[in-house]
Design a protein around this nucleic acid. Sequence first.
DNA 1: TAATTGTTTGCAGTGACTGCAAATTTGTCC
DNA 2: GGACAAATTTGCAGTCACTGCAAACAATTA
Lengths: 207, 207
Amino acid sequence: MQVEAGLRERKKQQTRAALADAALRLALEKGPDAVTVEEIAEAADVSVRTFFNYFPHKEHAILARNPEHLERALDRMRTAPADESPLTTMWFVVNDVLRELENDGHVSRRGELIMSSPNLLYQLMLTSIDDERQLTAALTERMGEPAGSVRPALIVSAAGAACRMVMELRKAAPDRQIRDLLQEAFQLLAQGIDPAFGPNSEKKGHS
Amino acid sequence: MQVEAGLRERKKQQTRAALADAALRLALEKGPDAVTVEEIAEAADVSVRTFFNYFPHKEHAILARNPEHLERALDRMRTAPADESPLTTMWFVVNDVLRELENDGHVSRRGELIMSSPNLLYQLMLTSIDDERQLTAALTERMGEPAGSVRPALIVSAAGAACRMVMELRKAAPDRQIRDLLQEAFQLLAQGIDPAFGPNSEKKGHS
DNA sequence: TAATTGTTTGCAGTGACTGCAAATTTGTCC
DNA sequence: GGACAAATTTGCAGTCACTGCAAACAATTA
């Protein structure tokens, strides 16, 4: 279709990037809740109305989610070697994303920013919910399970939870590497979080 | 302190309940995004400004989270028998909440409502993040682990993820019981989601 | 160049939410 | 019962996010 993008397309990319950059920069400077859309638009040299042509929310611009990430993740999942276990695939998917974010040079600052602002976290979670839906569908198929199976859905959502949890943990212990923490969490998930689990033992019941 | 609440306290409870009820009812009727705060306030016979004295957001009123739930959960966690394994404790905690919601008679309708509205889901997740923080702290202590340990944090967050995932799953398969799905998920988490996990096997690497 | 199509912009409007100060209600102490 | 203190409710003015619409503008195509 389009081998090289026309002027139009290029300008759009530029504007989008300018808005996203301004949004992230200002959010880091003044705190994400203190930035106003007006400032962002001004910094990117477009009207406020134009801002909303590009992003539905302020938060979206700050996160500036790259749709390619999800695409690549889905791809990675579909083309995974047949003998790769599902959580292993998730591990590589997560790592790919992590690596890309690191190359952006933003990973930790953006991560801190996100975890510090309810609204950002909100947006991130919303988009991850949607991502998780798609990842779940892909993984379910790959595992040859019927739609609605618990295991693939759990693998995806638990992996997501592990990622968020690690971000959270790191606020208290910034010395540990994200990757190490993640690995530990995945290992636990893989082998069992609690082998002694047993709500149906003899005596239980409590209330 | 207060053996029986004075008139003041009672009236506040009443107003709060009236607002929450109106909010839920209207949200179910018209869809959660279509309700306006003005309508809710009107239905509860107070001013808009008063609404905001009770709830910080529209969504909060619809969710009408009962702070007692968390209190009871934390209690349950602290007073758990010493030989009860951590995930088992989480299981009981989750079940308690489920049972209470069921007794409210709202569980499924509210659940559907929540899952159908990004904004509600947002609020729910935000509050659960905070709850998870507190639950993690309590569980970490109970397990005698140092602050910042991965396992207790993972147990709490994975349990939370499982709950949300089940809500989501049920949209596709409403015939299965919430409790059954949850049990299956917890069982998997307990014993291991993927025993074959191994990103460090011989040949791996991919990209 | 003229016509077409996509993008930007201003404007007007709705609705969430906040701070402030006045009015109202409730609790208390005589 | 009345006066005073403390809490609660309310109206008002204001900020900000976000939307629909139609006019202005720029890129593309014929």
